[in-house]
Amino acid sequence: MDTARSPPPLVVNSTNFLGKIDENHDLYMDYGAVGDGCTDDTLAFVETWKSTCNAQTEIAAMLVPDGNTFLVHPMAFAGPCKPTSINFLISGIIIAPNSPESWKGRNQGRWLIFKGVDGLSVDGPGMLDGRGKGWWDILCATHRHLPVISFLQCNKVSLSNILVVDSPQTHILITGCNNVVIRYLSIKSPETSPNTDGIHISSSHGVFIHNTNIGSGDDCVSIGDHTSDIYITDVDCGPGHGVSIGSLGRSGNEVKVDNINVIRVRFNKTTNGVRIKTWQVGRGHVRGVLYEDINFMDVSNPIIIDQYYCDVRGGCESTRTGVQISDVRYAGIFGTSKSKVAINLNCSQAVACTDILLDTILLAPSTPGKKVISSCNNAYGSSAGIVEPESCLLE
């Protein structure tokens, strides 16, 4: 299996954009923004985006100036745009409405949306504050995703040097995109906040996440269906639920996930480490997965494949279907496990996991004097180097 390649160069150069901005006024101020954190500045953002997206130049820019806090309601930055490159510079702070009541009559599924915009760079060093506490206190099952920032059907996108905090649910959503670079982010929400995934990826290809810190109430990174060529490198995860592929196949659909690479990731006191989770009714495949140079510190469930994933444990009927999981390599895995079962490969009786490789793994109990074990169900593969706890794979 190939190791991770370096991310492609960013498609924009922010130093070029700064010269495009009016020398005397910030663009947002020119369109009537107040920036006091209380006044609704949504219209100013809408009008500035229109001017930027329709600019008759090859390169265009927007600036959220430093020293200001902008209250913005749900809105879409829609393309396609005339410039081939757009830089969205966030030096100040953008905040969401403070309570769910403020969202009535507006799009409650998104906050800041970039849709159909190619050649986009969103750069800091500012902050996006989803002010999600009000959402955490209500039944989250009636709301899906509610991300701080979404990229939908965008190509050649970069997101960097931003602090993203307290999303109502998922912090960053990437759907239907190609060639996305996410780097030098800090994503933070309380460990108790429900469904606050750091980054969720679906139906996207060529996504690079590196040098990023994620602490949340759910998965640090979750990878959905119809994804390929995903590279997650040099990431700190915790608190949270780890890095997950899935859950997949809930509706009995055909799953297609290929070439997922998780390299040099550190998990600190997360509930899970590296996880693949699928529903029994799913079909299709997950293949070409590499977990390499991984460190666990007091992680409850370091290595998991769960092909019996269900909303209620044991509450789903057995089926003769399943998602084919194959060509999964765990290499250079070290650290401590809070649970007795440090390696748990619970594969489908209907569709076995195949070509699993455990290569140089050393997992010890978090509590001295305890022990850790491996548990396998219908999982086939091999081991190499030192593997502790001992491999339970079928050959």
Rank of each mutant, 00 (worst) to 15 (best):
T3E: 12
S6H: 07
L10I: 15
V11Y: 12
N13V: 03
E23L: 12
N24S: 13
V34I: 15
V46K: 04
T48I: 06
W49H: 03
C53K: 08
A61Y: 09
P65K: 06
N68E: 06
M75R: 08
F77K: 00
A78E: 13
C81H: 13
P83K: 06
T84K: 15
F88M: 12
F88Q: 08
F88L: 11
A96C: 09
P100D: 07
S102Q: 14
G124I: 10
M127V: 13
V148H: 05
I149G: 10
F151Q: 00
F151S: 01
L152G: 00
V157W: 07
S160W: 00
N161T: 09
L173P: 00
G176W: 07
G176F: 05
I182L: 15
L185R: 14
L185P: 02
S189R: 02
E191D: 09
G198F: 10
I214M: 07
G215V: 05
G217C: 13
G217I: 11
D219Y: 06
S222Y: 00
Y231I: 15
L248T: 13
G249R: 03
V257S: 10
N259I: 14
N259F: 13
I263G: 01
F267Y: 01
N272Y: 15
G282P: 12
R283D: 04
R283T: 08
G284F: 11
V289C: 08
F296P: 08
I304T: 15
R313T: 07
V323W: 12
I325H: 09
D327A: 06
V328P: 01
R329V: 11
R329T: 14
G332S: 05
K340W: 03
V341L: 10
I343Q: 09
I361T: 09
A364H: 13
K371V: 14
I373L: 05
Y380R: 07
I386L: 15
E390D: 10
